[in-house]
Write a protein that binds this DNA or RNA. Structure first.
Lengths: 189, 189
DNA sequence: CCTCCTTGCCTAAAGCCTTTAGGAAGTTCT
DNA sequence: AGAACTTCCTAAAGGCTTTAGGCAAGGAGG
């Protein structure tokens, strides 16, 4: 019997593509087996179980995102950096909805600590260095940005902005300006 | 055979409780049948299918949320209203994580239009009446608040704030103040 | 070249969830 | 009481997950 040449690597990559096509929830060991034209049980030599597969896809996505974010931040600071970083997120979510959903998967602490999630946090902090924020307000600001990015992208993906008029892109651009202003002129407690 | 007294109403309510206990993803027709001590197929007289069940739970959650929000807003305006409204969201998500997750379920357009989601949008607009925002900036502001609430609550639930120091509650309070400032002193384009 | 062993893939089987079809026993209304 | 409806049941098919045990392809070493 000719070997199909399945590897964990290829499996995860195919899983990511499947996620983008059909949604992260549809990523199933069975469907991947079908795509590799292999029996389901065979995949269990390459992946521990369904959860393991999903986790690996999540890690791939986090990695890709961090890479893009780091590239976008190179040579930029202040408003430019903020916008570039934010766009990386939004664009990635739009280009790769399944992978983006995967990146939201809750990881167990050890896995999370070893993931590219850590890089994300560092990059966000780096953006804020251009602004004059001290002490806890720096953390608050990180959380504001993180919350806004995540929430906006989620709402846009859910069609939450579909039935009101300015296109999401317009709000996105305007709000990034507003947030830049806010960071430059951060209100005192 | 003694009747178990299952009704769509009781099913949805039990589903909501199950969601809060075990997570929205664990809400399954089978598990509910177990809880009502009834055969699985029996439930299909009360609910069209699994998706129908989840949708009903989502609608219940949206309704409860809108009720709470409306109550919180009564007699308040400006910063007070903003904080009260925001707390309703965050508290609901913490008290009823499963229901809150259900409320995020993507509904088809007709269902969404008939849901309490519409009330949410109106309440949010009502809050902004206290601030001096005109034209598209009003929509932008609604989107900023919505994104922030949703993102913050999601990140907190995912434990995204677990390994940095100020407690989420502290950032939440501070950031609501910051946003209130921002709305009062909204930057010109 | 040819064993030997690792590894990829397979069959079998059990467990759990969903959904449909068709039937029997309570409930309700006339 | 009898008809009509509703609730619940058994049966059965189909899908996904996961484990156990086996055969054969391909590379390593003699």
């Amino acid at each position: 019997m000719a070997r199909a040449g399945v590897t964990t690597e290829r499996l995860v990559r195919a899983g990511a593509e499947l996620a983008d096509e059909a949604g992260f929830a549809q990523v199933t060991v069975s469907e991947l087996a079908r795509r590799f034209d292999v029996k389901v049980a065979s995949l269990y030599s390459h992946v521990k179980n369904s959860h393991d597969l999903r986790t690996r896809i999540a890690l791939l996505a986090l990695d890709e995102l961090a890479d893009r974010a780091a590239a976008a931040l190179a040579g930029r600071a202040g408003r430019e950096a903020l916008v570039a970083f934010a766009d990386v997120y939004r664009d990635y979510a739009r280009e790769h909805p399944g992978r983006y959903a995967a990146a939201q998967l809750r990881l167990d602490p050890e896995t999370a600590a070893a993931s590219a999630g850590v890089r994300h946090a560092q990059l966000m902090r780096a953006i804020l260095r251009a602004y004059d924020l001290t002490g806890p307000d720096q953390t608050h600001a990180v959380r504001l940005l993180g919350s806004f990015f995540r929430g906006f992208v989620a709402l846009e993906a859910d069609g939450g902005f579909d039935h009101s008029s300015p296109a999401p892109a317009e709000s996105w651009a305007r709000l990034l300006d507003v947030l830049d202003s806010l960071l430059r002129d951060w209100p005192r407690p």
